[in-house]
């Protein structure tokens, strides 16, 4: 039986906990702004005054980057990879195994709380101002906004499952150096978070399209600026749903193995 109230408590608690660590929120927002400045400048320089490149207008491209940076903020506000690894290494996670809840779900619901706090207090105010004062290509009909929100939430779930799976690999490996770097690389490049897939070399774009990472940034961003439009939107969201299912089952599989390993070792 799935008991919503237990998990909902985690969400509320972590929302409240975030409100105590104000400095964290501000520092996270600070570096988000610096990275926004960096990628905004890079794309302005790449376009070098051209109105459009590769069939995409400059305004749309700039919008892509701003929205992507917003989603980076959303996806970065949960439990970071190193914290999960740390919990496994120190054995803290074993204590949680004794408690009557499912750990992958417990972290997901806790993340939702801290992410919600960060969105409400930091991201929304900042990006509302940016949307108003910058020359950006915002969607004109409400349905696109809705699709964007849906795609972003599914993207968040994909990212959560992948990141948690990588974190739990710590159970099986003594040293995770190299593995987490591959994760971060895939997360930034193959997801299309800083360079949209249509600017990739063809072979690399094909690889990226067959991987789950594009569902995290590329699909929501491209829906937002109208590069994915019409019937394609539903197909893309379908692909995202497929990846949520796959990554969630992978996470479950790794978790089952991992928790059994703890029992064996803990003797």
């Amino acid at each position: 039986m799935f008991n919503y109230r237990v998990y909902w408590t985690f969400t509320k608690k972590s929302f409240l906990r975030s409100s105590v660590y104000r400095f964290d929120v501000w520092s996270r927002l600070g570096s988000n702004i610096i990275f926004l400045l960096m990628w905004g400048s890079i794309w302005t320089a790449l376009y070098a005054g051209r109105e459009e490149a590769g069939g995409v207008g400059f305004e749309a491209m700039l919008t892509y980057i701003v929205v992507s940076q917003f989603l980076t903020g959303v996806n970065g506000a949960g439990t970071p990879l190193w914290e999960i690894q740390e919990k496994v290494r120190t054995g803290d996670i074993a204590l949680e195994l004794m408690r009557p809840f499912d750990i992958p779900l417990r972290y997901l619901f806790a993340d939702i709380g801290s992410v919600a706090f960060y969105i409400v207090t930091a991201l929304l105010p900042l990006y509302t101002v940016l949307f108003i004062f910058m020359d950006l290509a915002l969607p004109t009909d409400w349905l696109t906004w809705l699709y964007f929100v849906v795609a972003s939430i599914i993207g968040f779930m994909i990212r959560y499952c992948i990141e948690m799976s990588f974190g739990l690999l710590t159970f099986f490996l003594v040293e995770t150096g190299g593995i987490e770097d591959i994760f971060y690389f895939a997360m930034s490049l193959l997801s299309g978070s800083v360079i949209p897939l249509w600017f990739f070399p063809d072979w690399l774009a094909t690889i990226a399209l067959y991987l789950p990472f594009q569902g995290i940034y590329y699909i929501p961003n491209a829906i937002f600026i109208g590069e994915i439009a019409g019937a394609e939107i539903l197909v893309s969201i379908g692909i995202q749903l497929f990846w949520v299912a796959v990554t969630y089952m992978t996470l479950r599989l790794i978790w089952n193995r991992a928790s059994r390993k703890v029992v064996v070792q803990g003797g």
């Binding site: 890079i42 790449l46 490149a53 590769g54 150096g177 190299g178 593995i179 987490e180 770097d181 591959i182 971060y184 690389f185 930034s188 490049l189 800083v194 360079i195 600017f199 990739f200 070399p201 690399l204």
Partner: peptide
């Protein structure tokens, strides 16, 4: 790990300048 991470940034630069 370090070398992987830096190669990642170098590859990102290459993809960026591909077009």
């Amino acid at each position: 790990g370090m070398i992987t991470a830096y190669s990642g940034t170098a590859i990102t630069m290459w993809v960026m300048l591909y077009q």
